[in-house]
Simulated scan of single mutants.
Amino acid sequence: MNSVLGGERPEIAGRAVFVAPDDGVVFDGGVGSDARPSAGDGIARELARLVDPSVPADAAERAIAVDQTNTSVIVDERLVVKVVGRWAAAERAAHLLERLADAGSTDVAGYAGRVDWRHPTRGTSTLAVVTEYLPGAQDGWDWAVDDVVALLADGAPEPDFPAILGATVARLHDVLGADAAPAPDDAAAARERRAAAALDAALEATARTGGPAAARLANRAASVHRDIRSLGATAPGLVFDLHGDLHVGQVLRSPGSPPRYTVIDFDGDPQLDASERGRTDGAARDVAHLLVSLDLVAAVAQKRLGRAEPAAFAWADRARSDLLDAYRATLVRSGLFDPALVPGLEAEQLAAELTYADRFLPRWRYAPDAAITHRHPSTDDHPEDPWTPPPSEPTSS
């Protein structure tokens, strides 16, 4: 069920919540990170009880994750309460999860409801989204890499998850694409401009930081740009509400026989401004992002192995083919997907991964560097070293 709070400073678990001038959602009595909810303060529990009155008044809370925008807390070992850190940060996710729930989708965690906030001057926005908690679930940067390392190091069977992911995303697209509409006539040019800007940003970032990745990207920029230019020759196609930030890390695998795969985090691309995250696009964008993430899994697996291993990208080649075959075989609304968009959107995403690393996570640079080095031929204009993985760190990808 859904619930609504009203007022400029509604009280939750004894603390008033208000919207700061920068649109941050702040709880009274806290400074910095303490201005957000945290496990044990009762805020997530009270929000959960507004959606599901069967939650005990003394239900336990446990921290699960803090990201740049939201805070998630496990309540009663059965619900996850995601509380926004900024006004309007969860509108998109709540809307898409409701649509999927109404369609009976089991490819996402069960949707329990949301708590909206009716503000006297700002209107109504989602304050919290409550979903099913999946015990023992891991995200794909763990389970997918584990599977590939087991294949390469121990001779384990070929992982079957690429085809599972392809079919899963096709089912999600069939639901979300039910109200797809024709893209504007200038969609092809707009996609090409956006992708070219992503490459320019990646070239600037790598040139500024220097190192081997800068030379490897410079030597492959012409090839990457060729793929980007292909976007300008594509048809506008159909557009709808996508996942928007799809990669293996957004797919949880829960223990079982067979294991359950669920797609999470429908908030959109975190590198875009909040006002742009909800824009519609063609299905190929989600598919391209997911294909790129298989190459990134291959890079992380090589880091785990402690060596450059050509068999990792040989696996990625097979995995990409399996994912695409399963996606196209499962997709009922076939008109949603234009394969001609994939090369250019992949090129954009690879560039965006480098920029993301520059802005937020420098140690991640090696992964998109590996994928670009593998996928694109070099002009050899600049001296470059072969790509090799950095030393493995037990707690990071």
Rank of each mutant, 00 (worst) to 15 (best):
W117N: 04
D107G: 14
V51D: 03
A235N: 00
G177I: 04
A288P: 01
R226L: 02
D41T: 13
R304D: 04
P56E: 11
V297K: 11
G85M: 01
R260Y: 11
E353A: 13
A183L: 15
D22E: 09
W141M: 06
L5N: 05
V73D: 02
F240G: 06
L100A: 11
V115W: 07
A90N: 01
H173T: 02
R226N: 10
G42L: 10
G256P: 00
H374Q: 08
P56A: 15
F360A: 10
A298R: 07
A215G: 04
A196V: 03
E384N: 13
R114K: 14
T262P: 05
Y133V: 01
A190I: 03
L341S: 08
L203W: 12
R62M: 10
T206F: 07
A187I: 09
A153H: 07
V73W: 08
G282H: 13
R36P: 00
G24R: 15
A167S: 13
G104Y: 15
P270C: 13
H374E: 02
L134K: 12
P258E: 07
R45D: 01
Q302F: 14
T395P: 00
H374P: 02
Q68T: 13
S72K: 02
T373R: 11
T330V: 10
D338Y: 12
A214T: 06
W117H: 12
G278Q: 01
L5M: 13
L79R: 10
S275C: 00
P368V: 08
D381C: 06
G42V: 06
H374R: 08
G344M: 04
R328P: 00
V83M: 05
D295K: 14
G232D: 02
L165Y: 14
A170V: 09
D185K: 14
T131M: 12
A65R: 14
L50S: 04
A197W: 08
T262D: 01
D338N: 08
A316L: 01
W364E: 00
L176T: 08
L203V: 14
A188V: 02
P236V: 05
D67H: 09
L252N: 03
L151K: 04
L96E: 10
G42D: 03
A299I: 14
L5Q: 05
L100G: 12
D58G: 08
L331E: 11
K303L: 11
P258Y: 12
A57L: 13
D22L: 06
D185H: 13
E132H: 07
V130N: 03
R171W: 03
R45A: 04
Y133C: 00
I12D: 05
V248N: 10
E158M: 07
A167Y: 13
